[in-house]
Amino acid sequence: MILNSSASQHKVVQDVWKALDGLTDPEIPVITLREMGIIRDVEFIAEDSVVVVITPTYSGCPAMEQIHDDVRNTLKAMGLQVEVRTQLAPAWTTDWMTDIAKDKLKAYGIAPPNRQCGAPSQQISVVHFLRKPSSTEQAVECPRCGSSHTFESSKFGSTACKALYKCLDCQEPFDYFKPY
């Protein structure tokens, strides 16, 4: 049976997506690039050629070179010629992360981004010298014990897209994936 052009294109794109579904984020290996929302599109060029569009979590993300290589090598192993195109606009947002990715972040020990974020508050706690969340901000929940009694100890955590927090109940530090 010979597939028509449209069915053939669909099959190639479907096979590419299936192959890309196995690629994980180099910095958070429990989450796939697709779950993170980094892989934006697959464009069919020809039977043996595709373009994969990716958007970094932020423009200076050091993992992008590794992501490029992983995408390129995975698809070359399928016998495809591939162009990996970085698209900066629209800018990546944590809204592109799937709920599965957020659940995996939490299980991995990284607090997922809150959906609602307000403007930073200047309110200071005299006892702990910590900024309290304003009424429009959601507290960052500790991924280890579930407490919302946490504070930001550094604007940057293990990577620039995360902040470092500490739980005042279990006393454990943890990364918080900053919402964008």
Rank of each mutant, 00 (worst) to 15 (best):
E43P: 09
T159V: 13
P62T: 01
R85W: 12
K76Y: 03
L20V: 06
P90Q: 02
N114P: 14
I110V: 12
T74P: 01
Q171I: 07
L20A: 04
A63L: 01
M97H: 00
A111C: 04
N73M: 12
C142L: 06
S6L: 10
V50I: 08
P179Y: 14
T32I: 04
R144T: 14
M36G: 07
R115Q: 03
I31Y: 03
S6G: 04
R40Q: 08
Q116S: 07
K76F: 04
Q116C: 05
I67S: 01
R144W: 15
D48K: 12
I54S: 10
H149S: 07
T24W: 12
N114C: 15
T159S: 13
S6Y: 07
A163P: 00
V126G: 09
L23E: 13
F44C: 09
A91N: 12
F174T: 05
R115I: 03
E27Q: 14
S135H: 08
L130Y: 10
R72S: 12
F177N: 00
R40A: 02
S158L: 09
E83T: 10
T32R: 00
S147I: 02
K155G: 14
C161P: 02
V53A: 01
F44H: 14
G79K: 05
L88Y: 04
C61M: 01
S121E: 13
T150C: 03
D48Y: 02
E27L: 09
A107D: 09
V42L: 04
R34D: 13
Q66R: 06
L130H: 11
D175V: 08
N73L: 10
G118R: 10
S6Q: 12
Q87H: 06
I124L: 10
P179F: 14
M64V: 02
C61F: 02
H10Y: 13
E27D: 14
D69Y: 10
G109I: 10
I54L: 09
V140I: 13
D41S: 05
V53C: 00
K155W: 15
V71R: 03
M1S: 06
Q66I: 08
V71E: 01
D69K: 11
S8M: 13
L3N: 13
K132C: 01
K155L: 15
D41A: 07
Q81D: 06
D95L: 11
S8T: 05
Q138C: 11
C142V: 04
L164A: 01
S5T: 14
E35T: 02
V82L: 10
E141C: 13
